[in-house]
């Protein structure tokens, strides 16, 4: 007969293994169901007609999402243009220049920014950024530039916290070596510290892109959701996420399948971005 304690230990271990496997199970289910709903339409309508199709009229059999793919990338790049320099300079300030007390105040404040819900960003974007763009730059205000501005701020916490970690993990000896050569602090930062933290900083930009391309609620409130490739930064646009969120509530039949096809494309883009980012981070740690 097995001892009770031994039995209990084994029981606990197997329960924990089952719990640990749950994450994998959920990931599998998410893939399975989004793919099983999204792929049939690719076979029926053709990959080319969906990914490179220009016309989205799902009730009439047109499922082209090319303008949305381009729009998603445009807002993401726009967000990065705004968020990357701001985020990186914040991270440099936090890791290299700020005193301990300042850090104690700034870091939590920046983390709180990450907690503000995206609907609140969207709302404030509509109330303040959209009229600002409309009055000073023209157009309706619901535009690529408004969306990029708001997304740029939304991805700041991601960029700051990951580049901060990368900058902090540069060994102290590098800084001392550079200082010993008579370099100023800034010379040390841009000639020694940034190059050695390069892959972590890049990873933070790519994860920031991942956040921007997956962002939904703020985007549908500000982007204007027009079904074409924007011709200028003042034109409205519709992203992949926006397409799903705007139509899922009432879509049926092939229309709904089309939204899942949109989801498949989004999922593939996100997986690629995350893979690149994780690869970058891992290489940094290995070094």
């Amino acid at each position: 007969m097995i001892d009770r304690t031994v039995f209990k230990e084994r029981f606990v271990k197997w329960v924990l293994v089952a719990f640990a496997l749950s994450s994998l199970l959920f990931l599998f289910l998410i893939f399975l169901f989004i793919l099983s709903e999204g792929l049939p339409l690719f076979l029926k309508v053709g990959v080319k007609n969906i990914i490179f199709g220009f016309k989205w009229a799902p009730t009439k059999g047109y499922f082209g999402i090319f303008p949305m793919i381009i729009s998603s990338f445009l807002v993401t790049i726009g967000a990065l243009v705004i968020g990357a320099p701001m985020g990186l300079s914040c991270a440099i300030y936090l890791s290299e220049y700020s005193g301990k007390k300042m850090k104690m105040f700034l870091k939590p404040a920046l983390e709180l920014l990450a907690g503000i819900p995206s609907v609140v960003f969207g709302f404030l974007g509509v109330i303040y950024i959209v009229p600002l763009v409309r009055n000073y730059l023209g157009g309706s205000g619901f535009s690529l530039i408004s969306t990029s501005l708001v997304l740029g701020v939304m991805i700041l916490p991601t960029i700051i916290s990951i580049s901060f970690d990368a900058l902090v993990s540069v060994p102290k000896t590098y800084r001392e070596g550079s200082a010993a050569m008579g370099a100023t602090k800034w010379q040390t930062i841009y000639k020694v510290i940034i190059p050695s933290a390069k892959s972590g900083i890049l990873a933070s930009f790519i994860l920031g892109m991942g956040r921007a391309i997956g962002e939904t609620m703020a985007v549908i409130m500000i982007a204007g959701n027009a079904l074409k490739i924007p011709g200028s930064i003042l034109d409205p646009l519709r992203t992949l996420t926006g397409n799903i969120a705007l139509e899922l509530a009432y879509a049926t039949g092939d229309h709904r399948l089309g939204l899942f096809s949109t989801g498949v494309v989004l999922m593939v883009i996100i997986m690629i971005l995350n893979y690149i980012a994780n690869f970058g981070i891992k290489r940094k740690i290995a070094k």
Binding site: L21, E37, I213, E215
Partner: peptide, 24 residues
């Protein structure tokens, strides 16, 4: 493998959770 699963779940945007929750 488990860590890969956890990391991937963390990277999935909320609209895809919405799609999954809706269909499943």
């Amino acid at each position: 493998l488990i860590r890969f699963g956890v990391e991937s779940l963390a990277g999935i945007p909320s609209i895809l959770y919405g799609l999954f929750g809706f269909i499943f």
